[in-house]
Each structure stands twice: as C-alpha cells, then as structure tokens.
Write a protein that binds this DNA or RNA. Structure first.
Length: 465
RNA sequence: GCUCCCUUCGUCUAGCGGUCCAGGACGCUGCCCUCUCAAGGCGGAAACACGAGUUCGAUUCUCGUAGGGAGCGCCA
C-alpha cells in the first residue's frame, strides 16, 4: 500500500497558519515516504462554504508551494457515493432513522448537562426500527457500539483510549440529505485510500467515532497523527490580532514562503540543533512521529530572523523579483531607479522583511520625502560639513567610473586630505543623500542613488545649510 | 459537568534512567568590529509546574495535584 496523506480544509475562510502547518506536515510526510498528497475540500456545510474561500485556500497553498498530487476533490460532488454508503450501513443494521426535532435534542442536552452528565443523544430511535419516511427532522444515525473500547496509536500523541460508553449515536446524514463531517471523512478517506490521517488535535475526540464507522464498513482504519494547536504569542488561541490571518497576509507583510515553511516545520518539530532547512532537508528529515505533543506559541520575532536568513543567503536576483513586487505595491516603479538586485545586496543585512526592504529602498527611487531635522542639525550643519560636501561633489563628478569601490576611494581621499575620520564625511553625505542618518554603507548609498542624482542631492543639501 | 490531551529557559526546542549543577536557536544583554544602522564574532543572565511512588539513581517511568487546551452539533 502506498503512503497517502490528505489535507482536508473546509472552505469557510482563508488558509491560516494552523492549516498551513497541517498541510505542510501532510505534504512533507507524503514526500518523504514517496507517497501522494491529496487535497480535498470539505464543503458539505452549505451555509458557510464559499467559492472565495476555496480560492483563498488554493492561492495560499500555491504560494507556499504545497502542490497536491491529486485533487482538489470536492465533497459536494460525491453525494451519490455518500448516499450509497449510508444505504449500505442501513442495510447492515449499523444505522437507523431518527426523527427528533432540533428543539427536542437541544432540550435533551440541556437536561443532561444540568444533571452533570455529558450531553449525548439518548438513543430513543436506536431500537425502534422506524422506516424512512418524509419528515423535516429525519436524520440517519450511526448505531455506535455500546460496549468495549476504541484504542488507537496516535503517531504524535501515543496510545489513546476511549470507552464506547462515552460515545453516542452520531448523525451520518442530515435532514437536508448532506452527510455530516464524521461520515464524509471516513467514506472519502477509504475511497481515496488515505493511509495516514494528519490533522489538528481538535479532532482527537472524533477519531473513535470514525474508527467505529470504519469497522462498520469493514474497512481498515488509517494511521492517525493529531497535531497540537498553534497558540498566539500570549498563549491564547490564535485570533485575527495575532496570526490567525491568511497566509497571504504574510506575503504582503514581506515574508518569503520558504521562511514561513521553515518556521512552521520547526514549530513543534526539530532535527538536532538545526534551525534553517532547505525544502529537501525538510523532506529528508521530517518525521511525523517526531512532532511534539504540546501546543506551541507563534513567535513573530523568530519568523523575522528566519526570513532574514533567507533574504541574506538566497540568490539576490531571485529576492529582487520579490522585492519588485513589494516596490510596486507601495507605488514605486522598480525600473525607475537602481537595479533591484543591487538594492537587495545593500539592504538584506538590515531588514527582516521584503516590505521593510521596499520601504527603505524608496530613497533611491524617489526624491527625499522628509528630512530628519535632527540629522540635518547634527551632521549637515556641523563644523566643516559644507566643505566636505563640496569636496565630495568635486570628487564624485570627476570619477572615471561610478562604482562603490571608486566612491569609497574618493571618500578616503577626502579623509586623508583633511585628516578627518570617515564619520565626518560619511554622515553629512548620508544625510545629504537620504535625508536621514541611517542607511547602508556610504559608498553603497551614494552609488545606488546614481551619479546625477547623488550630485543633485549634495547640491540640495549644501543649499539647505 | 463529563471525556480526551498537554506541562524543560520569556519563546521554539534537545533530552528517550546515570553522559544534565540540563544542550541549541530566537529574543534580551556585555564586549569586539565599525562611516550610521545592521550583519558578523566572542561572552552572559535565563528552565526540568508541584507532590508522592518505582529505582542504587529520576528531567526521563507510574500515580495524584495544580494549571492549560480540545471535544461533548443535523460545524468541520
């Protein structure tokens, strides 16, 4: 039997961090074992599923590079199959029709809860053998075993045991004819020959019910692996304020897909002391059995550090492509200024995200928008600054070649001629070129501005003094 | 309320009975480097939730306690 995993999101929203990690682990595990990764959209909730959400999930996965080998499959297109399996269960005596109204069920649960019991279906119709008849409250329920235990070896959590007495007769088919989640997953996972179910640990409690359905269907249950949750930085459940946002938001915020994947892989899993993993290494070393059992907090600071690792170490030409996307987003035409690859090299040690990089790159693509008055006062209006700027202007204008090396030499010459430190030259120049006192090395800063623009800005700065 | 799950530095984690006065990483912090900011290099502070038990010996095994989480739907 080949190794097959699936990611089965319900399209009621975008792909968020938790979903992305589940998808990644499924994908990694399938890759490592040479199996297949299947995408299945669980859209049986007609009230909440939307096409926009389906698209958002697909977009998120595609940005992350988690390409399914099969699918996407849609549950709503498999209705005939669920109906057939429901009939099979009914014929075999493993299911029965029940006709309580929702109001009645609610009242039952409330009463049980009040009595200090676990709210469950009472099973009034379990042995009545009622025929199928037209009734707005008609549902098909599963005849869950009443005795014995369900035991399974979770790949992440270890051995988990449930008493059948704790379970009740869940609904398989709703009154609207649509299958419920617990029923549809089992049918799908059997049909799609899923060998390994990897999902969030909010499903642990559903697992024994599903295993009972597998048994009733005479099918071998797959292996299970339940992933612990991802918490917000405050240890609370992820919310929109901190992380439960679409993975696409991370793109907009300037994170690279590889960095996010690496961060997610490392959140709940580790391989020795390694922190930075290529995709190939993740595939080679990842093992679902090594995943941690406890919930982990999402730490933006570490994601930022990782993102910078990729900014620093990847091919700058490749990074430049992504930078260009961010430049356009803030209204800058990347062709209207220095080569983006050079900009990446100048800024990659200084920012953690592409978004920051784009913002800092602005100085070379657009005129100085605002002057840092403190910088002006401190460095431009400093003793001798004007003379230094004039000297720089002269040297720069006369340079044979406009390169960082040549600019650096020119500045050194000024320092030697005037017997002053580099700082006395670099800082006034920096303010002249950027309007601020922070930027990459002075020769890069000047070089990227372009000779004409650099000279123009030096003139402008002298005038400002 | 009931069932299930979880608990090592602030955070992510290593540890699978002695190698641990607990290792790595992010963050924080000191120094160095230095034209600013970074990046980088070298240091530092910082954790086994608690209580029993098993054992010659527990961070590692068992059981409790406390704390946290999930589920208990005709949602997934």
């Amino acid at each position: 039997m080949t190794f097959r995993t699936r990611f089965a999101p319900s399209p009621t929203g975008y792909l968020h961090i938790g979903g992305a990690r589940t998808a990644l682990y499924c994908w990694l595990e399938a890759r490592r074992r040479g199996g297949q990764f299947i995408l299945r959209v669980e859209d049986t909730d007609r009230e909440r599923s939307t096409d926009a959400a389906v698209q958002a999930i697909l977009d998120g996965m595609s940005w992350l590079g988690l390409k399914p080998d099969e699918g996407p499959f849609y549950q709503t297109q498999r209705m005939d199959r669920y109906r057939a399996v429901a009939q099979q269960l009914l014929d075999a005596g493993n299911a029965y029709w029940a006709y309580e109204s929702k109001a009645e069920l609610d009242a039952m649960r409330a009463a049980m809860l009040a009595a200090g019991e676990k709210p469950r279906y009472g099973g009034a119709y379990r042995d009545r053998n009622e025929p199928r008849r037209d009734d707005p409250d008609r549902v098909l329920r599963f005849r869950n075993p009443r005795e014995g235990k369900v035991v399974f070896d979770d790949k992440v959590k270890g051995r988990i045991e449930f008493d059948n007495a704790e379970l009740d007769d869940l609904v398989l088919v709703r009154s609207d004819g649509f299958p419920t989640y617990n029923f549809a997953v089992v049918v799908d996972d059997i049909d799609m020959a899923i060998s390994e179910v990897i999902r969030g640990d909010d499903h642990v409690n559903n697992t024994p019910r599903q295993i009972n359905i597998y048994r009733a269907l005479d099918a071998k249950p797959p292996g299970f692996a339940h992933l612990p949750m991802i918490l917000g930085p405050d240890g609370q459940k992820l919310s929109k304020r901190h992380g439960a946002v679409s993975v696409m938001q991370y793109r907009e915020d300037g994170y690279r897909p590889h960095a996010l994947l690496n961060y997610l892989a490392r959140l709940g899993w580790s391989h020795g002391d390694k922190e930075v993993f290529s995709i190939g290494q993740m595939i080679e070393w990842f093992d679902i059995a090594d995943v941690n059992q406890s919930a982990a907090r999402f730490d933006l600071a570490k994601l930022g550090w990782l993102n910078q690792q990729y900014l620093k170490n990847d091919d700058p030409r490749e990074v430049a492509l992504e930078l260009a996307w961010h430049l356009r987003r803030i209204g800058i035409d990347p062709s209207d200024g220095p080569d983006a690859t050079e900009v990446v090299i100048a800024l990659r040690d200084r920012v953690q995200t592409l978004k920051e990089m784009a913002e800092r790159a602005r100085i070379w693509y657009a005129p100085i928008a605002a002057w840092d008055e403190k910088a002006v006062a401190k460095h431009l209006r400093a003793e001798g600054a004007a003379a230094v700027l004039r000297a720089a202007h002269g040297k720069f204008a006369a340079l044979q070649e406009w390169s960082p090396q040549a600019i650096h030499l020119a500045i050194e010459e000024i320092a030697n001629e005037r017997a002053i430190g580099m700082g006395k030259i670099a800082q006034p120049l920096r303010v002249a070129i950027t309007g601020t006192q922070v930027s990459p090395s002075i020769e890069q800063t000047v070089h990227l501005a372009g000779r004409d623009e650099a000279l123009r800005r030096i003139d402008q700065a002298i005038a400002k003094i």
